[in-house]
Structure formats: structure tokens, C-alpha cells
């Protein structure tokens, strides 16, 4: 385990040399770029491990899940479509699915565009994803406008991946309040994003 000093040094290094996940993913896909893979690995793996361990995963399983995730990132790099999702979101969903698959009897249920019953996005919805880089700043700004009681629930839900019931017990508030704060928070986030686009 890293000491506090290591962690700080690590973060400063990352901050001094920001990496472009999108570009590195494309380099992995087009030329099996080893350097790009290692940059993605160093940017994602320690954070993913921390993420998993904060959620209560034991260390050996956290290592397994992150190895599985990085293996899939390599294997599936050519399926990455930057017009549909940012690289960080794409990697996050791979990691989350790897975690769920590791703990559940059944694989995660996701809609499949190849399904004949699938109804694709209308063209307008597709175009809204063009300004990706911009958008993550907008999302951060929108989140920053949330009142602290809503922000805390969003943080605990995403970072610690707690269920509504666990959050309700932990914060000592009724389940209905947890749910209504989530609804209010996303209503506000969507409203803020509408204002900037």
C-alpha cells in the first residue's frame, strides 16, 4: 500500500503531465501502441483499485477486477467510438461491468443495439454528443451548483456505489428522501446543462 507521501507525489506527477485518454485509446486501437496502453494503465488502474477498495472489495479481488478491466480495454479498444462516449466513461462502464460480473451470478443487463426491437437514438440526440471535452467541464460546473445534501448523495452513490437503502441507513434519513434528493439533483444538473448547450 502506498504511503501518504507516495500518493501525493503520484497525483502531482499526473497533474503535471495530463494524459489524453481518448487519444491513447485510439492509439491502442490503431497501432497496438504499448506506450499508450501503459499511460492508460497508470492513469486508471490505481484509481480503479482505490475506487473498488473504498467500496469494500478485498485487495486481491480488486486486483483481479482491474486486470480484467485493463484486459478488456486492450481487447475492445477498436470498438471504442469517441462520438458516443468519452474514453473515461467507456472505461468506467467496462470496469463497472467487470465488477458486477465478478460478484453476480449473472452478467450485467444492457440494451443491445443489434436487438431487432431496439429503437435507436434520433439524429438530434446523436449530434448533442459532439462537444465531448467541453461537456465534462459543463458537467462539473453543473454538479458544483448542487446543494450539499444532494451532492453528498450523488457522491456516495457514484464513488462508493452504495444503494439507496444503504445511504438512507448511513445518513439516518428516510428512503423516500434519498430518492427525492436524487431526482432533484438530476433535474438540476440537466437544467444547468440545457442552459450551456
Amino acid at each position: 500500500m502506498a504511503t501518504g507521501d507516495d500518493v501525493r507525489r503520484d497525483v502531482t506527477e499526473k497533474a503535471a503531465k495530463p494524459i489524453d485518454l481518448d487519444q491513447d485509446l485510439i492509439a491502442i486501437a490503431t497501432s497496438q501502441d504499448q506506450g499508450a496502453y501503459q499511460r492508460v494503465f497508470h492513469a486508471i488502474a490505481p484509481r480503479l483499485k482505490t475506487f473498488l477498495m473504498v467500496q469494500g472489495t478485498i485487495e486481491s479481488i480488486a486486483e483481479e477486477i482491474l486486470q480484467e478491466t485493463m484486459l478488456k480495454v486492450w481487447q475492445k479498444a477498436r470498438l471504442f467510438d469517441g462520438s458516443k462516449a468519452s474514453a473515461s466513461t467507456w472505461i468506467y462502464t467496462i470496469a463497472r461491468n467487470a465488477k458486477i460480473d465478478r460478484f453476480r451470478k449473472e452478467t450485467r443487463l444492457v440494451p443491445d443495439p443489434n436487438d431487432p426491437s431496439y429503437i435507436p437514438d434520433s439524429p438530434e440526440t446523436g449530434e448533442q454528443s459532439v462537444t465531448k471535452k467541453q461537456e465534462s467541464n459543463h458537467i462539473k460546473e453543473a454538479i458544483a451548483t448542487l446543494p450539499s445534501d444532494q451532492l453528498r448523495i450523488i457522491m456516495v452513490s457514484f464513488y462508493e456505489e452504495k444503494s439507496h437503502t444503504e445511504i438512507s441507513e448511513e445518513l439516518g434519513i428516510p428512503l423516500g428522501t434519498v430518492k427525492s434528493r436524487i431526482r432533484l439533483a438530476f433535474g438540476k444538473i440537466r437544467n444547468e446543462l440545457k442552459g450551456v448547450s
Binding site: L21, S86, Y92, T93, E135, S136, I139, F158, Y159, I189
Partner: peptide, 8 residues
């Protein structure tokens, strides 16, 4: 997207 921001 939000969850991914919390991760990265």
C-alpha cells in the same frame, strides 16, 4: 459520465 468523472 458523472460516475466516470468521480473515477478519473
Amino acid at each position: 459520465d458523472i460516475a466516470a468523472l468521480y473515477l478519473v
